[in-house]
Design a binder for these strands. Structure first.
Lengths: 196, 196
DNA sequence: TCAAAAACATACTAATTAGTATGTTTTATT
DNA sequence: AATAAAACATACTAATTAGTATGTTTTTGA
């Protein structure tokens, strides 16, 4: 990788972590410069302004990460209900990057930015629609393969699952540990069983 | 009401609306002064600093509002599953104050403030525990009265319902209207039916 | 009614912010 | 090696921020 490209990527990655922890608006350019050891001249060489960097983070960091977490594992066949539960369990209990006290990066950005920046809104909408479409698709396949009842409404279930995940990621901020996560996962299992 | 008390209440109410729309950190004292027509001297007479005002909003505005919305209606007997569905439907579809693009005030504050201000965290935790306890209680009564299956785990269901609500309030920010709300409510109905 | 306290008003400060102006250094191309 | 462009560095600016200092007005209780 070229050196300049490495600088740009460092900024995006470190800024993403800072924003995950502190929020977008309260992460200052100077914060980013301090943790990356990049100077202001270099920063503004790579990005026109802060928002351009923010959108680049969504497209170049968040989107690939979510594709890797949600879309790619989906290529496997088998019971989609098992698959969905396993994905949620892994995300909530095993993912080493995501901390209960800081929630879900995508959820955080949506909550903070969407009402006031249409570009952030449509960028996040793309991500979420990709996730949504993938879940609907896998549920439909599951219906065809007999894993899921035929009268199940895949999109409704998808919204239920995504909402639950984002919600518990936020509820969990009020815990000390992962109690809410555990309770949520147990009930998610019951719910998914009811779709068989 | 005394005039000074009225000033204080105006600040809390208008600041609450501003924070709901703009977020806590990005709502400036000057914003609040401009919309309330209160001067800085008056503001700092009533509140030691911004955070004291924020906590007062939680305790004196948010908490009573939530009690009125979630706790009081709960005194009625009858089917708790019907009751929960009705409450969610009303909150999502009919509440005139809450707008899809701005989400849920309690959820917003939790997401923004909890990781960085322990006082906000424990204040919000109080609210949520109150809501949680109420839902658990009503579900237990429902089990006793035969409305809910005996093997249902009330706290798990409660976490599922609260997470779903907070999550769909955030998902809904990406919609133009209330599509996600409608889909969520339909599936919530299916889910609650599975607890009968 | 009249002083003391409560309530409010105005002008300021110091820190932080995103962004710019104007450089110097590094890299790539001939 | 020479040169132009790319990449980075430093010093600044103007706006905004929470909070303070120092007043004036209004209310209250003896």
């Amino acid at each position: 990788m070229k050196k300049a490209e490495a600088t740009r990527l460092t900024i995006l990655q470190k800024a993403f972590e800072l924003i995950y922890v502190k929020g977008y608006q309260t992460t200052s350019i100077d914060d980013i410069l301090a943790t990356t050891q990049v100077t202001k001249g270099a920063f503004y060489y790579h990005f026109k302004n802060k928002d351009e960097m923010g959108l680049a983070i969504i497209h170049e960091i968040l989107k690939p990460t979510m594709t890797e977490s949600f879309i790619t594992p989906l290529q496997n066949p088998g019971d989609p209900l098992e698959f969905i539960y396993g994905m949620m369990h892994h995300l909530l209990m095993n993912n080493p990057f995501l901390k209960p006290e800081f929630g879900c990066p995508a959820s955080n950005i949506t909550q903070e930015m969407t009402p006031w920046n249409a570009d952030f809104g449509s960028a996040m909408n793309e991500l979420i629609e990709q996730w949504e479409d993938t879940l609907v698709e896998v549920l439909e396949k599951g219906k065809a393969a007999g894993f899921v009842r035929k009268d199940v409404h895949s999109k409704q279930v998808t919204i239920m699952v995504m909402s639950g995940y984002w919600g518990v990621r936020n509820l969990g901020k009020l815990d000390q540990g992962k109690e809410s996560y555990s309770l949520y996962l147990k009930e998610l299992k019951n719910y998914l069983d009811s779709l068989k």
